[in-house]
Write a protein that binds this DNA or RNA. Sequence first.
DNA 1: CCTATCTTGAACTGAACAGTCCAAGATGTG
DNA 2: CACATCTTGGACTGTTCAGTTCAAGATAGG
Lengths: 196, 196
Amino acid sequence: MAGKKQFDVDIVLDAAMVQFWRAGYADTSLDDLSRATGLNRSSIYSSFGDKDSLYLRCLNRYAVRYGDRYEQALSSGAGEPLRAIQAFFEVTLQRIADPDVPDGCLVAQTAMATPVLSPAIATRAIEAVGLQRARLRTALNTAELAEGDAENYATHIVAVNQSLAVMSRARASQKQLRTIVDISMSALSQALHSRG
Amino acid sequence: MAGKKQFDVDIVLDAAMVQFWRAGYADTSLDDLSRATGLNRSSIYSSFGDKDSLYLRCLNRYAVRYGDRYEQALSSGAGEPLRAIQAFFEVTLQRIADPDVPDGCLVAQTAMATPVLSPAIATRAIEAVGLQRARLRTALNTAELAEGDAENYATHIVAVNQSLAVMSRARASQKQLRTIVDISMSALSQALHSRG
DNA sequence: CCTATCTTGAACTGAACAGTCCAAGATGTG
DNA sequence: CACATCTTGGACTGTTCAGTTCAAGATAGG
C-alpha cells in the first residue's frame, strides 16, 4: 500500500467538499472526513495539512467550480442582461435540484459562520461574495442601465442568490425558489425597459 | 447561595440566546453558556435541561420576540401593503444595525444547519420561516394584489429578509443591505400599481 | 435558632475531538 | 532479487466536550 499515491486528489477533495458542505466545519470531524474520502487521518494530514487548510482548499474549489459556471452563464446571454441573469440563477436552481450534492451553499454557510471560523476562511468567503457581485456588475453594465443601478442590482442579485441557500435548507420547494427568483427578475426587467 | 433562584430566567435566556445566535449550536459549549449567563452547569441543567432543550427555548424566544415585532410592523401600515412591507424590512435592518445583538439571524442560521441539528430544532426553524411567510401573505392579501401574487411576494420577501442575515455576516454595509431591500420594494410597488 | 429544602460550585466520567507517530509493507530502481 | 523510499493504518496523546453527582451552605418557616 505505498510507493505511489493511492488516491485521486480531485476525487478526495470533492468528497471532503461535499462533507463540509452538508455538515459545516464544526460538525465535520476528521473521522467524518476519513470516512467520506476513504483516506485515513495520516494521509489527510500529509496530503492536505490540518482541518483548516483542507476546509480552505474545499472552499476554494467550490468557489472556483461554481464561479466558473456563474461566469459562463452570465456570458452566455452576452449583451442581454435579462437572459444573462436568468442563466445565472439557473446555475443555483439546478445545483439545488441536483440530488448528488447537498442543498444550501458552501459560501453562504461559511459566511454565516464567520464569527467562529479562522480569519483566513472567513475572509475567503467574503471575497467569494464580493467576486460574485463584481461578475454581476460587469454583466449588468450595459447602456440599458445606469452605472449606479448596475451596482445596486448586482448587490440585490447576489443576496437573492444567497437566500436560495437558506430557503432550500428550510425545505422550500423548487417552485417556491423559482418564485423568489422570478420577482427579482421582474424588478430587473422593469429597470431595463424604463431605459432601453 | 440557595433557597431561592438566584437569577432572572429572562435575563439568562437572553444571554444564552445571544451566545447561540453569535456562535451557533456546535460552536457554543456549556462552558460558553455558563460564562455568558453567569450560571454554572448544574443550574443550567436543572433549570433548562440539556443543550438541545435550551437551544430550542432560545430559538422559540427569538422567534416570538422578533415575530411580534414583524407582526407589529406589518399591521402598522394597515391597508397599505407597501408601507407594511417597508416597516417589516425595517425591523431586520434595525436589528442588524443594533450593536447590542449579533449580526445574522438565529432562524436563518438554524435553517442552514438543519442537516446536523436535532429534528425538533430543525422543524422549529422551518416552522418559523413558514409563519413569517403566512404573516406576509396576510398583509399582502388586499384588493390591489391577486391572491397568487400575495403568496408569491410573501415567499420572495421572506427569502430576501433571510438574505440580509447572510449578507450582514458577509460584512455588507448598511447601505448595501438597504439596496437589496429597495429593489424588492420596487418590484412590489410595480405589482401593486399595475392593479390598484 | 433549628431544620428541612433547595441552589450552587466544583469535581468527576466517559466519549469524542484534533493532531502525532511509527511500524508494516507496497513500490520502483538497479 | 535486494534495498531505499514513501504511503498507509492504527494506535496513541492531551484536550475538550456534554452530562452527572454531591457536599457545602444559604434560605424560609416554625
